[in-house]
Nucleic acid binder design. Structure first.
Length: 506
RNA sequence: GUCUCGUUAGCUCAGCUGGUAGAGCACGUCACUUUUAAUGAUGUGGCCGAUGGUUCGAAUCCAUCACGGGACACCA
């Protein structure tokens, strides 16, 4: 039952009284002529003036009331707009007869959005403020705000009612402003390099481009199922076949998997594909990209992340196999021996599946012993071919691929490789994935015949890369949960919020 | 999915080994014309997440469920 709360009832009553007195509690006539941060900048000289005020200046500002201090016939409020917070001084004798006592004190309160006009002055305590001569309610808030000192700390409320979180915490607003800047800088970086931004389908007939479980939806007109995309990769490569030489897409992917501090069912990535380049060129452009972000975000090269400090002047490059013994401390003589790896895993009380290939086992060793130790940016290169179904083989060493993943602060940030463009090899790798699927791997890659067909027309040698934007934003804003960099993270519906949709278990 | 912690007033939180619900902020009333989480006085405000059980008696103990946090698993 909405609005049954007694505090809300009281506030609705106040809104009604305002209406009766001829004041619209939801006025649409804003006369604002500057923002709070501009006001503070422009009037920074006022503290040096005689009487610390300039009555000839006049400004009209708007904002939400965050603090309301009444002291008899005078009051101090703090109002906040997107740009900042400002103290305003309101006194009985500067307002129309009766307004201060009957309207201002009784019917306006914390949470309401008001508009004030007046001149700048500095208080005895030295704070630049606005001396109000006109005050008007723009929007009545009928729900009370949370406690002014602690704000909202309950994460459930913060995520479910993000608007409240944003009202109460300017740091949260700042995180999302930084996120927006990162996306915008990324777009500009690649555009400046001559990349073309494209939009490829979000609904796929075949969920390809990654190994993940898709969300399924249904297209009524065609009577067929569609999959929300798990990656845009195969469509972007079709564009390279078509003759575009540098394309990128920043958009959402959807994966039907668990949720935790680094996984949300929908997440944002950039993927970019660059013809006539190799993964070596991608390493260079990635370093350049990070430098570009750091320069434009004014971030320190030694970036704190939780207890860690990440040195962005120290990009390293190391082959996966080498990292196993040099960083992971795995005995060097076992890393190319399937049986010895299995033995080593068992000795370390880790799951050892004999069905796994050598490459898969090397991947397991990497995940267990190396990944979390990669604090400074590290390009791990030369991935085994059997865990890289879409990457190009190395010409000299066909069992490894021309691929890297970038790790920072113990976490994967990017995945890149020289693209496989041999249509016959691609077909057989898809077939390999199909047998894995038949053997029970429900995340093996789907066969995409049209993609193989596209490759058969010839795709120029190309390098491609994906970067998880949410995790990148986490890194650059020192946030440790993906929910804190998503405005509206996925949450379970609270009971009764959504009609139960009984799905049949597969 | 597993383990674990949590859920008490609009918000932030107390509430011991079971005895009938507390504070601060907010809100109402009063005082106060330079405050800084303003202050002082006073008052209103609760299905103690839901359902069952144990008990003379449950916010408190037990069980199940719901939602959330954290960890693990899964997820390149």
């Amino acid at each position: 039952m909405p609005f049954s709360n007694k505090y809300i009832q009281l506030r609705i009553e106040k809104a009604n009284q305002l209406k009766e007195l001829g004041y619209n509690p939801y006025s649409n006539h804003s006369q604002r002529n500057t923002t709070i941060s501009k006001y503070i900048n422009v009037n920074s000289d006022v503290e040096h003036l005689e009487n610390k005020r300039d009555e000839k200046r006049n400004y009209t500002l708007s904002g939400r009331i965050k603090f309301f201090r009444v002291m008899g016939k005078a009051s101090f409020l703090k109002i906040e707009d997107e740009s900042g917070m400002l103290q305003v001084y309101v006194s009985r004798d500067n307002l129309p007869e009766g307004f201060y006592n009957d309207v201002f004190k009784k019917l306006i309160e914390v949470g309401d959005i008001i508009e004030v006009s007046g001149y700048p002055f500095v208080t005895n305590q030295g704070e630049l403020s606005l001396h109000v001569d006109t005050l008007k309610l723009l929007t009545k808030a009928i729900s009370p705000l949370p406690e002014k000192f602690h704000g909202v700390t309950d994460k459930e409320i913060r995520y479910r009612q993000r608007y409240l979180d944003l009202i109460m915490d300017s740091e949260v607003r700042k995180t999302f402003q930084t996120r927006s800047k990162i996306i915008s800088l990324t777009r500009r970086f690649f555009e400046d390099k001559g990349f073309l931004e494209v939009e490829t389908p979000m609904m796929h007939p075949i969920a390809g481009g990654a190994n993940a479980k898709p969300f399924v939806t249904h297209h009524n007109a065609l009577g067929i199922d569609r999959y929300l995309r798990i990656a845009p990769e195969l469509y972007l490569k079709r564009l390279i076949v078509g003759g575009f030489e540098a394309v990128f897409e920043i958009n959402r992917n959807f994966r039907n998997e668990g949720m935790d501090a680094t996984h949300n069912p929908e997440f944002t990535s950039i993927e970019f594909y660059w013809a006539y380049k190799t993964y070596k060129d991608l390493i260079e452009i990635t370093k350049e990209y990070f430098k570009y972000l750091f320069d434009h975000l004014n971030l320190p090269t030694l970036l704190p992340y939780g207890q860690m400090e990440v040195d962005f002047a120290d990009f390293k490059e190391i082959p996966l196999i080498t990292s196993l013994f040099e960083i992971g401390g795995v005995p060097q003589d076992i890393v190319n021996d399937k049986e010895k790896i299995l033995e080593f895993l068992r000795a370390n009380k880790l799951e050892a599946k004999p069905a796994m290939s050598l490459g898969q086992l090397q991947g397991v060793l990497f995940d267990e012993f190396v990944e979390e130790k990669l604090i400074n940016p590290t390009f791990i290169t030369d991935y085994p071919v059997d865990i890289s179904p879409l990457a190009r083989r190395n010409d000299e060493h066909p069992e490894i691929t021309e691929r890297f993943e970038l790790f920072i602060a113990g976490r994967e940030i990017a995945n890149a490789f020289s693209e496989l463009n041999d249509p016959v090899d691609q077909l057989s790798r898809f077939e390999g994935q199909m047998s894995a699927k038949d053997a029970g791997d429900d995340e093996a890659h789907e066969m995409d015949v049209d993609f193989v067909n596209a490759l058969s027309y010839g795709m120029a040698p190309t390098a491609g890369q994906g970067i998880g934007m949410d995790r990148l934003v986490m890194l650059l804003t020192n946030e440790h949960s993906i929910r804190d960099v998503l405005l509206f993270p996925a949450m379970k519906p609270i009971h009764g919020e959504v009609k139960e949709n009984h799905e049949e278990e597969k």
